[in-house]
Design a protein around this nucleic acid. Structure first.
Lengths: 244, 244
DNA sequence: ACCTTACAGTGAACACCGTTCACGGTCAAT
DNA sequence: ATTGACCGTGAACGGTGTTCACTGTAAGGT
């Protein structure tokens, strides 16, 4: 599959004139960079999912031995951090054109979800890392600034931020690539699932049996939008009532 | 460390009279059970976290060879499912005494969080599995029944259920054992973190620098309660407005 | 132009992981 | 007593993250 590099050492005792790459021994100094690591890691992530992102796979893709990666990255965790910050860098945080503060928050949340789902698996990393890298902080800044400008107290703003941020992260976490979501996306599997729900004993699960087909459906988009709207409505209520 | 079992085959050629356990070769039939697997898996999970739950660790704990587990469990994924359902079985779903429907929902969410955080790591499994086991379904039944009784349409009920359920799961996911939370729990580390936040460039992160210490604090309990209240307030608003 | 030095990638190893399978001992039913 | 089903054993396979002595290259100083 991959071109054997040993055979190049001999002088064309192979059959075809393989046009020996550039130099006799193919200089190997300075082939790796942190940026190359992160870029290719993102490629693997977006192509084969988070489970496919192994040090060995990354090394293979970079045509390098696994241990070589550790010259540029302390361990896999740091690689994750770098990947995360690189992903968050894609976020456009400019929301000044939105009149209502709820519009600004919603726009940020929507963009966050888009970026996270564009690189499947990254949300899973974020949930348990909170990198505190520059772009992660910039995102927090954008959220908090909008919330403060809306008149929320520092405490309210902090609570609101972690609510919206956590909601979006949690939503992107079981992304479209998740087994749970796949089950409901494919119409055949969904049919089985609905049949299963309908067949449940009516005495123990009456409500699930009755409206299971309205719950386990392929409505990711509606679910995200509606959930976000509900949260923002709740925040508006909180802001009006003197709870602080 | 562990008692070597090979030496028992010979007839006490070892030094001490080890009082050969029960029988000459220590009958090994019927040592394992699904229940024992699940119980010990929960023990490992609650003791050393989700990363420590490996087939080999479980086998060692059960004083058995790794492959033996596969007589009782198809693979690790099924073990996860069994563990999850066993955890959800601890949930008390009786909420009839609560007058307001919001009280019922809040009570269920609170109990769910308690149970999930009692067994660290289980939330992480739930997020990506949705086992559809009996106890998982019973939980959905309890939520949906309360929401329907409150007068929500099937669609609204479904959306509300996944919002509250997802919120609670996501919250329990980065539980107290998470590195992110630990950082803010320990007062020394929190001091460093606050100093770091204060030291941020005022021109790029003014809001974070100003109220970072009100955001990254040890207020899990308040965060959960406030977030839940906000969501319920939002749901109440949704219910009053004719959005369906 | 030479020598020295720092470093990046190599190759091999270590210690784990999940999973499979032929084997053989034990028990229950015949 | 014989049979047969079952269950744990031991060993292996292929995968993972990580470490480390080694070595050739490239750059800097003289």
């Amino acid at each position: 599959m991959t071109r054997p590099r040993q055979s190049v050492t001999g002088q064309a005792d192979e059959s075809g004139p393989w046009f020996v790459p550039p130099a006799g021994q193919e200089r190997r100094r300075r082939v790796l960079t942190r940026d190359r690591l992160v870029t290719e890691a993102l490629a693997i992530l977006g192509q084969d999912g988070v489970n496919a992102l192994s040090m060995r796979a990354l090394a293979t893709r970079l045509e390098v031995v696994p241990g070589a990666l550790y010259r540029h990255v302390r361990n896999k965790e740091q690689l994750h951090d770098l990947v995360l910050d690189s992903v968050l860098a894609e976020l456009d945080l400019r929301v000044e054109d939105q009149a209502a503060w709820t519009g600004r928050i919603a726009l940020l949340a929507r963009r966050l979800r888009t970026v996270l789902e564009k690189h499947p698996g990254t949300a899973g990393l974020l949930k348990i890392r909170d990198p505190l890298g520059p772009h992660s902080l910039a995102l927090a800044e954008a959220f908090l600034a909008s919330l403060c400008a809306a008149g929320l107290s520092p405490r309210q703003a902090g609570l609101a931020y972690s609510l919206v941020y956590g909601y979006t992260l949690g939503f992107a976490l079981d992304g479209p690539a998740c087994a749970n979501e796949q089950r409901v996306r494919d119409s055949a599997t969904r049919g089985e699932l609905h049949a299963f729900l309908r067949s449940l004993p009516q005495d123990r699960f009456p409500t699930v049996a009755a409206l299971g087909e309205h719950v386990w459906i392929d409505n990711r988009e509606e679910r995200f939008t509606a959930g976000l709207a509900t949260i923002l409505a709740g925040l508006t209520v909180d802001m009006l009532s003197p709870e602080d």
